[in-house]
């Protein structure tokens, strides 16, 4: 692939380290994206980094759950003009792309299950300058055993502040000779079956239309005996965008989703996938090599039994949601820096 060949030398992906090694890297300078469980993040020194809570990783030895290790990704930056960190509450999140450099990229980390997460999920496609500047990132989460006991948080490493209600963004200018490229690797495709539409943007679904007829999504999924590990998939001009099912409440006739569906978008159930790792390797073949930074979804980790299994070409945190401009589910997101032809 032409673009892959042009990707730059420099920081390529990150590494899963002990806390002391991570602290040493922070002290050595450079800018970093960091992921770890909350107590470990609290122990890291102040410095040029942003981070988020998560104990699920893909490391060199395969998928791993660790409350001690730290995933550290060095980020490509420019020698001219340093990156800057901004924190956004739900009210001010809409200006994230306006604050971004005219030429560069923005890495954003959102704490899961918060108003700022929901605002990004629902409204990001309409933010000013969205899609005009590269924005990518991930949703911070917690160990599934800790649900209802701990809160996800994003971290502003410049002053060691854990933000449970704010998104933390790193705006990074790049030299004119380089460009940040955001891409996704999604193994799921539409099954070319029923077409499902929704009346409004929502995380909680009751009514929908199926092939133009009014229906209830929970009832529809039950009738289809649908595998709830498979997402709903929408075709955005050729890019497959997933929305994952969180739970079905048959008594209420409601379906909870990990990301909102949108009105005016046609969704279909995903075609079943045989072996995730094989499908991932096929999808990654042209995309993943030489990425500077990447994240994959914890649902892929869980549903595909990735603990102890490698996804070659990718290492990074396994997250509660991914951002490639808009919020995604069950998708790997990567950023690569390309050198522009002179």
């Amino acid at each position: 692939m032409e673009q892959a060949q042009q990707r730059m030398d420099g920081p390529h992906g990150g590494a899963l380290l002990g806390a002391e090694q991570a602290a040493a890297m922070i002290r050595s300078g450079g800018w970093f994206a960091i992921a770890a469980d909350e107590p470990v993040l609290r122990r890291l020194p102040q410095g040029n980094w942003i981070g988020g809570t998560i104990p699920y990783f893909m490391g060199a030895n395969g998928g791993e759950i660790s409350r001690e290790k730290v995933h550290v990704t060095p980020l490509p930056t420019s020698a001219h003009g340093g990156p800057w960190i901004r924190r956004y509450d739900a009210e001010h999140l809409h200006r994230i792309c306006v604050d971004a450099p005219e030429h560069g990229y923005t890495l954003v980390i959102l704490p899961a299950m918060t108003p700022v997460h929901q605002t990004y999920a629902r409204e990001a496609p309409g933010f000013e300058d969205m899609f005009l500047k590269p924005v990518f990132g991930w949703v911070a989460g917690i160990h599934l055993d800790d649900i209802n006991r701990c809160s996800p948080a994003a971290v502003d490493g410049s002053n060691s502040v854990l933000c449970s209600q704010e998104a933390v963004a790193l705006h990074v200018p790049l030299p004119e000779s380089q460009v940040a490229e955001i891409g996704i690797v999604n193994i799921f495709e539409q099954d070319h079956g029923d077409v499902i539409r929704f009346p409004s943007a929502s995380f909680t679904i009751t009514g929908c239309t199926v092939n133009g007829r009014q229906d209830n999504l929970a009832e529809y999924l039950r009738r289809r005996n649908a595998d709830l590990r498979l997402p709903l998939v929408a075709d955005y001009s050729g890019s497959m965008i997933n929305v994952s099912v969180k739970a079905v409440d048959e008594a209420r006739g409601a379906v909870e989703l990990y990301a909102p569906v949108f009105p005016g978008v046609e969704y279909q159930l995903a075609r079943p996938v045989g072996d995730y790792v094989q499908a991932f390797e096929r999808a990654l073949r042209d995309e993943g090599a030489g990425t500077a930074c990447s994240f994959n979804c914890v649902l892929n980790f869980l549903y595909s039994d990735l603990e102890g299994r490698c996804t070659p070409g990718f290492n990074g945190p396994m997250t509660f949601g991914e951002v490639a401009y808009q919020l995604l589910n069950q998708t790997m997101v990567y950023m690569a820096v390309r050198r522009l032809p002179t």
């Binding site: 899609f131 955005y236 001009s237």
Partner: peptide
């Protein structure tokens, strides 16, 4: 093939 352009067009 560019993700951002695909998303912008669809949106």
């Amino acid at each position: 093939k560019i993700l951002s352009l695909r998303l912008l067009l669809s949106q």
